[in-house]
Design a protein around this nucleic acid. Structure first.
Lengths: 121, 121, 121, 121
DNA sequence: GTGGTCTAGACCACA
DNA sequence: GTGGTCTAGACCACA
């Protein structure tokens, strides 16, 4: 996954999402040590403060933790991580359905729309 | 549709979305005169300038136009409006699929997820 | 010449320009009686007040005049009308040259640009 | 280039034009950081909001972009910038030719008119 | 009455 | 320090 940012959304948020994604997808595995803030900052081409902020917020969600004087680690709690993933999936699906309903589509139209998209991929 | 705003996104953008939605859903019909900026501002509880900005941006997309000294009207171009709607739907569906794929789900998992959600509604 | 308006500029100004154009091009000839304000308003699909304002401003420039209780007439002063025309042409040409110079083009580039355009017409 | 405004056209539009001109003429070069909104506002003697609006619209055309929390920069895409310039030149030339033709001048008269003007400069 | 522009001033997120 | 948003309020052109 590349460190690219969309410009119209806060970089720290996009960073958060990318890092969480790397954890969910086991690019950073359970119990792994994460790269130092400075390395990520360099690689992503952003200010270390921005990485710091993203990390702090992810830590707030419990899926990474800090060993003082050592570094940050991915939580060993695999259930937590898979819970984060399924929460994420469910919220996206709910938002998607909600949005299309507000545009006036019913369930079967929503299903058809999705199938159309999946076919073209 | 209520004039409620989420707080973490600009009001003028949310206004834009709500108004476009009203047009797509024919609450404001083709050729209709829209309520005056000041009326919407009052109803939505925001400053007229904020409504003005939303309107100007929607006008930039061509689905409404201004008659000077008179007011704003929904475009008579029904094709344009239905194009806006289907663009909207397609983009949402694409984003949804893209996001779930980046979380590691394949097509059949995405389909299953959506069906689960639709069942619970 | 059709009575069509661009929307982002005042209608009365566009009306002025169209009417003056009709005079310069002898669609309305020296000494002719102009159509009544109400007829023009109907034909152009605008408010009679707007036509009235355009007429008043043209009258201010001397190329039309009012006979009370009768109507408006194109001035008999042919020199005045051709002066208006050449003023118009000169001002346009000056503005054009000025604008292109401010974009950094020199005289010969301006000439070339114009010749390119004339070729493609 | 002075920050002077004509009074009968919106200031934000004139600002837009002046800033774009400065980019086209490489007063603000590819990749350069632009002066802060507040500085330009002070220099031009207008409200920062007005500059903000001009900037936002220029950004919409893609030739400048914002680094959040940092400032605005001229696009690195030199092709885009030269395209903007030539579009600008062509549109001016087309408008000019169109206007003179509607006044009844033919191609050779238009050419002569321009040459007269260029001689007197 | 309608939209369009502008100012002054405030407050916020971001880096 | 930088841009982004928003409000309050004013004034104007237009129809």
């Amino acid at each position: 996954m590349a460190w690219t940012f969309s410009g119209n959304r806060p970089i720290f948020q996009q960073l958060k999402e990318i890092i969480i994604l790397k954890i969910i997808n086991s690019e950073y595995k359970t119990g792994d040590k994460l790269p130092p803030v400075r390395d990520i900052a360099l690689e992503a081409g952003v200010n270390p403060n921005t990485v710091q902020r993203a990390m702090a917020e992810i830590e707030g969600e419990g899926i990474i933790y800090t060993k003082r004087g050592d570094g940050r680690y991915v939580s060993e709690d695999e259930d937590l991580i898979s819970a984060v993933k399924s929460d994420c999936v469910n919220q996206m699906a709910n938002d998607f359905v909600q949005s299309l309903k507000s545009l006036g589509l019913d369930s079967s139209q929503i299903k058809t729309t999705l199938e159309e998209i999946l076919k073209t991929e």
